Simulated assay, not measured.
Amino acid sequence: MKRQGQTLSLKNLTKSNVWDIQENDVFRLWAQAERDADLRDNERHYIDVIKSAFTIEEVKVDRPEVIKKYEARGCQVGEIRLDEGTKVKWALKKKPILRVTDLTWENIHHVSAHKLIEVLERNFGGG
């Protein structure tokens, strides 16, 4: 995934460009970053950036029927490695932009004009 001449990674992921990626990209970027030594030092920052655009739920019960429930809710489930080598399953889902209050400085540039009109009509009525 390229962005203005550079390859996107966790290191250059921001609260603005995180809206350009999907759930599977988060897992892929995290897997690539696991090879970097500074992942451990900046892990909290990376999670905060991801949380600005995605809902993250830790999957505590790793059974197929539980995974299916997450997937039925539109989440993508994947495994990541946190500091000290602990493996954790996350259920990720991109945050929807349904209300005016969901719009932020970071995500407004990633909303189509059509979607923006939908959000405004939903909040103020059409007509």
Rank of each mutant, 00 (worst) to 15 (best):
A31D: 15
A33G: 06
T104Y: 13
G74Q: 12
G85W: 06
R63Q: 15
V26S: 06
L10Q: 00
Q6P: 02
Y46G: 03
F54W: 10
G85R: 06
L92Q: 08
I21Y: 07
R99F: 10
K87L: 02
E23I: 06
G78T: 08
L120D: 09
V119F: 10
N107Y: 10
Q4E: 05
G126E: 14
R44W: 02
L98H: 13
Y70A: 05
K68H: 14
D41W: 07
G85S: 03
P64R: 06
S112N: 13
P64S: 10
G5N: 04
Y46W: 11
H45L: 01
A113N: 12
A37P: 09
L29R: 07
L92E: 06
L29W: 08
D102C: 11
A72N: 08
R3F: 04
R44Y: 09
N24H: 11
S9P: 00
R28G: 10
L82G: 13
L8S: 01
D83S: 09
L92T: 03
D48G: 06
E121S: 06
S9V: 02
I117Q: 14
R122G: 14
G74M: 14
E84M: 06
N42K: 11
L116A: 15
W90K: 04
W90E: 03
I47R: 13
K95A: 02
K95F: 01
D36W: 11
N12C: 02
Q22P: 00
E71P: 05
V49Y: 04
G78C: 05
V18F: 01
A113H: 14
E121D: 12
V111A: 14
T14L: 02
L10I: 05
K68F: 12
G74E: 07
R40N: 12
D25V: 04
S52K: 05
F54I: 07
R73D: 11
A91D: 03
F54G: 07
N24W: 04
F124E: 13
K93I: 12
H114K: 15
D20S: 07
V18H: 04
M1G: 05
T101P: 04
K60T: 10
D36V: 09
K15L: 00
D36I: 06
R99M: 04
V111H: 14
